[in-house]
Write a protein that binds this DNA or RNA. Structure first.
Length: 534
DNA sequence: TCATCTGGCACTTTTGAACCGA
DNA sequence: ATCGGTTCAAAAGTGCCAGATG
């Protein structure tokens, strides 16, 4: 059981001094909330300064631009990166303490959306959530000094709609709204990741919420992507001058020619934002209680500012976008709504397949209960939501002498459909902006069968235990090398070259937030590095 | 018929081996 | 032999678009 947690949202802060190492002023990080497992807020122990950690979203201005338009993220079968990419600056860590940084993406609500009349609207109930997966930063675990030295980038995180994705990408449903979250897990000697007193810190930037799509719906988003994503420079129009889509946008979005476009990957540089908008974490989550520390002096009773509503009709009415569809060689402007998606289609594949049948949902690379890597390997690491894994306390087992430092597993966080407040959207009703906050009865210590949706079980190297589940390989090199051989496709690159560093993946059946409990289990790298600086 | 998804395309950036000279 | 800089080709990441799917 966790004895402490910290959570926060990025809202409500104020712009303050430029943190060292950042080239732009960034808003004050979210206020930290510290909650104990019993549901009461309290300060962390003096030696666990996790509550002093501050997280700054990189390129926040860019994120806000997208957010204001209603961020969309493409999901593909092969996996697609997020853009803007999720990068943060972390401060306040103990330089010598080791931390693990990871992200997950949780449903923002229980609705499916449609893009109708140039805005996102609720179109029915959400489909069952995909297997929950975590993306562990490849540098994890690393010292606070390491994390604070530079931006922490999760840009290699990929999103997919492939329910059977074997690559460990985060699986999402199209036309659903999601909220990325950042977790910072303390993993030092006295607070071993996976131990009963694991301290972690969950951070949510509401402006990073997005709706997953298989093709862009809102052309303003398309243009923002083209304008800001260097890989999309090819779509920035010709010398004659215009973005392809801009022709169809009328005056709404400025025509951008190659001549006038300049790389604007960091458009927020030099900009100072005003008060951060949005609301704080709402109470209701026994594990992650709201606990605002109004550094700016704003009393808790003051209504939080809201982000511009990206998905509601309350946007500037003058902003008019059009629905397009492709027919033949031309696009046709459509002002009408697309056919409402009113019925919730059953999952393409029985949920059982993913959540309850580890054997059936067990991608080769996800079948290990722990992952290890050769020292120095720093590849992407994604972890799947978990199977019938009894990770509590980590089932000791296995030939420890031969195995890499084994893992203990702890349920350490809960994932719920990201809560929204305000009126419950109804079908056909424009989506109301949701603030990021936690709600729900999730408890990190609920016995597995009754566990709340998407608990995160953490497997940590400090103990000589393993996450229960598919039998791990006992080969010292760890799954990494083995899987590379078994699944070369996972490690593409030039022949004869060492594959790019990759961590291996763990698969854990997961479940829908609305369905029987599922857990995220995370197997952390079993590098031979010690977890302390000693 | 329609909304949504898929795969190929052209384009760009990124990556790292190969090469060269100091 | 080593190091640092440059070059270049392949890989990877983009959105667009036509066709497929349910």
């Amino acid at each position: 059981m966790l004895q402490e947690k910290a959570s926060a949202v990025a809202e409500g802060g104020v712009v303050t001094a430029l943190p060292a190492g950042l080239s732009e002023p960034v808003p004050e990080p979210s206020h930290l909330g510290v909650a104990s497992a019993d549901g009461t807020s309290h300060s962390t122990e003096p030696d666990q300064n996790i509550e002093s950690i501050k997280v700054f979203l990189h390129e926040r201005e860019l994120w806000k631009k997208f957010h204001e338009a209603g961020t969309e993220m493409i999901i593909t079968k092969a996996g697609r990166r997020m853009f803007p990419s999720y990068k943060v600056k972390v401060t306040g860590m103990n330089p010598k303490t080791k931390y693990i940084l990871l992200t997950d993406i949780v449903p923002a609500d229980e609705h499916r959306y449609k893009f109708c009349d140039n805005k996102w609207m609720v179109a029915g109930k959400a489909e069952p959530a995909m297997p929950g997966r975590l993306y562990v930063h490849p540098d994890s675990p690393a010292t606070g000094a390491h994390w604070m030295r530079q931006l922490v980038s999760f840009q290699k995180l990929k999103l997919t709609n492939n329910h059977l994705d074997p690559f460990g990408h985060i699986i999402l449903n199209s036309m659903h709204k999601y909220q990325p979250r950042l977790h910072i897990v303390k993993a030092d000697e006295n607070n071993a990741f996976g131990s009963k007193n694991t301290a972690y810190y969950t951070h949510v930037f509401p402006e990073t919420a997005f709706i997953s799509v298989t093709s862009y719906q809102n052309h303003k988003i398309t243009q923002l992507k083209i304008e800001n994503n260097p890989f999309a420079k090819g779509f920035r129009g010709s010398d004659e001058g215009e973005l392809r889509v801009s022709r169809l946008q009328g005056k709404e979005y400025p025509v951008i020619s190659k001549n006038i476009i300049r790389p604007r990957l960091a458009p927020s540089h030099g900009q100072v934002t005003g008060k951060l908008e949005g609301a704080g974490l709402m109470s209701g989550h026994p594990q992650v209680l709201p606990h605002y520390q109004y550094e700016s002096g704003v009393p808790p009773s003051e209504p939080p500012e809201h982000h511009p509503n990206p998905f509601s009709p309350s946007r500037d009415p003058n902003l008019l976008y059009h629905c397009f569809k492709h027919r033949g060689n031309s696009r046709h402007l459509e002002l009408g709504c697309k056919r409402p998606y009113l019925d919730t289609a059953p999952p393409a594949v029985p949920e059982e397949h993913y959540f309850r049948s580890p054997s059936s949902y067990e991608p080769p690379l996800l079948s290990h209960t722990y992952c290890g890597e050769p020292l120095g390997s720093r590849g992407a690491c994604m972890y799947g939501g978990g199977a019938a894994v009894d990770s509590e306390e980590g089932g000791a087992g296995g030939s420890d002498e031969l195995s890499p430092p084994a893992l203990s597993c702890n349920v350490w966080a809960s994932v719920q459909p990201y809560p929204r407040y305000g009126t419950q959207p109804t079908e056909g009703v424009p989506y109301q902006h949701f603030p990021a906050h936690f709600t729900g009865p999730a408890s990190s210590v609920v016995p597995r069968p009754q566990a709340t949706p998407s608990e995160l079980a953490v497997c940590s190297p400090p103990t000589v235990q393993r996450c229960p589940g598919p039998a791990p390989s006992s080969s010292p090199p760890g799954p990494g090398s083995m899987d590379r051989a078994a699944h070369p496709a996972m490690y593409p690159r030039r022949l004869g070259l060492p594959p790019r560093a990759h961590r291996d993946y763990l698969a854990f059946p997961s479940q829908s937030p609305r369905d029987p409990p599922y857990q995220y289990h995370m197997g952390l790298s079993t590098t031979r590095a010690h977890w302390t600086d000693s």
